[in-house]
Simulated scan of single mutants.
Amino acid sequence: MTATVFFAVLLAALLHAGWNAVVKGGSDKLASMAGMSIGHAVPGALAILVLPAPAPEAWPWIAFSVALHFGYQWFLLRSYELGDLSQVYPIARGSAPVIVTLVSVAFLGAALTGQQLLAIGLIAIGILSIGAARAGRAAPQAILAALITGLFIASYSLADGIGARLSDSPVAFFGWVAFLGAFPFALYTRLKRPGLLLQLPKAAPAAFFGGGWASFTAYAIVVWAFTQAPLALVTALRESSIIFAVLIGALVLRERVDLARAASVFLTLCGVVLMRLAR
């Protein structure tokens, strides 16, 4: 992984942690997630207009990705209703790199060095241990929802990685996913709470105007990175966003950071450094 890709994915991780904090920090979780998801439509449409269309081989993956992203959004929203950011986020995000690595090595022919596998392992263990430290106090439903969210994260990451490589235009690929993906969540919002769609600019202005753009930019960087480096490495590095999430949780949302969580963040950081040094 080149330095350009490495630091671009770290920027995406920071943006990703930020928009998750917007959703968790908002008093109306459905409005925040709807604002974020529907807010994708504008940058997605711009990407569609200015970039070359994806290759025909990528379109089945676009459709598959739209479905997987909706599942992820629904379960993430459910997870945040049942648990707090610093508990749910690590469980969901920490499981994804493990699944992506196993599938990449077993079925996609990825060749990873021992150092790279160790780096992925450190990041995953560090992230999971943050959530595990509070798992005993979590509702079982919150843990289950977070684990299912992690499965969706791994699934859409693999689908987007494969689709982006086939598309010849990775940002346009995600532009279509983001644009089309706004419609199923808008329909869900309409059925869940009639009238909310028209109120989104007032009900969730941060998510609607800023979070959608931040989320789109973050994942567009990741989708581009999928075409430049192994999927497992990009996915694991992206999940280092937990470091930023814990900082945001402590400084903005006033969530407590104990010694165990600080040690977990340090372990994750060690994995990030090792990934940068790995050859």
Results as ranks from 00 to 15, higher is better:
residue 73 Q to S: 10
residue 66 V to L: 13
residue 170 P to I: 05
residue 32 S to H: 12
residue 258 D to A: 10
residue 68 L to D: 09
residue 111 A to D: 04
residue 207 A to V: 08
residue 123 I to V: 08
residue 12 A to D: 00
residue 18 G to I: 08
residue 189 T to W: 09
residue 9 V to T: 01
residue 195 G to V: 07
residue 165 R to I: 05
residue 229 A to E: 03
residue 76 L to C: 08
residue 187 L to R: 14
residue 256 R to E: 08
residue 178 A to S: 14
residue 4 T to P: 11
residue 6 F to P: 07
residue 166 L to W: 10
residue 210 G to F: 00
residue 270 C to T: 05
residue 143 I to T: 15
residue 246 V to R: 09
residue 69 H to P: 11
residue 209 F to P: 12
residue 143 I to Q: 15
residue 205 P to S: 01
residue 209 F to W: 15
residue 214 A to W: 12
residue 61 W to N: 03
residue 278 A to H: 10
residue 121 G to K: 06
residue 215 S to L: 14
residue 101 T to C: 09
residue 210 G to H: 04
residue 154 A to L: 12
residue 59 W to T: 05
residue 37 S to I: 02
residue 221 I to E: 04
residue 30 L to N: 05
residue 207 A to P: 08
residue 156 Y to N: 15
residue 84 D to P: 14
residue 88 V to T: 09
residue 195 G to D: 13
residue 180 L to G: 15
residue 168 D to Y: 13
residue 38 I to M: 05
residue 266 F to D: 01
residue 217 T to K: 12
residue 182 A to F: 07
residue 233 L to S: 06
residue 263 A to Y: 02
residue 115 Q to C: 07
residue 31 A to S: 02
residue 190 R to K: 14
residue 19 W to H: 01
residue 53 A to V: 04
residue 233 L to A: 01
residue 256 R to W: 09
residue 228 Q to N: 14
residue 247 L to W: 03
residue 259 L to G: 06
residue 25 G to A: 05
residue 221 I to A: 05
residue 227 T to Q: 02
residue 179 F to I: 10
residue 23 V to H: 13
residue 198 L to F: 13
residue 241 S to F: 03
residue 48 I to M: 06
residue 239 E to F: 12
residue 223 V to T: 05
residue 10 L to D: 06
residue 196 L to S: 00
residue 111 A to T: 04
residue 233 L to M: 09
residue 111 A to V: 09
residue 94 G to T: 03
residue 162 I to P: 15
residue 274 L to M: 02
residue 278 A to P: 10
residue 153 I to R: 13
residue 260 A to T: 07
residue 259 L to N: 05
residue 270 C to G: 04
residue 123 I to Q: 06
residue 144 L to I: 10
residue 258 D to F: 14
residue 254 R to G: 01
residue 37 S to N: 08
residue 82 L to E: 00
residue 54 P to Y: 10
residue 120 I to C: 03
residue 54 P to H: 09
residue 273 V to I: 07
residue 222 V to S: 12
residue 145 A to S: 12
residue 109 G to T: 03
residue 102 L to Y: 13
residue 6 F to T: 03
residue 6 F to S: 06
residue 115 Q to E: 01
residue 126 G to L: 07
residue 144 L to S: 12
residue 127 I to L: 12
residue 140 P to K: 09
residue 203 A to N: 04
residue 234 V to C: 07
residue 40 H to L: 06
residue 20 N to K: 04
residue 108 L to N: 15
residue 213 W to N: 05
residue 243 I to P: 00
residue 167 S to R: 14
residue 108 L to M: 15
residue 128 L to T: 01
residue 94 G to W: 00
residue 41 A to T: 08
residue 114 G to Y: 05
residue 35 G to A: 04
residue 124 A to F: 02
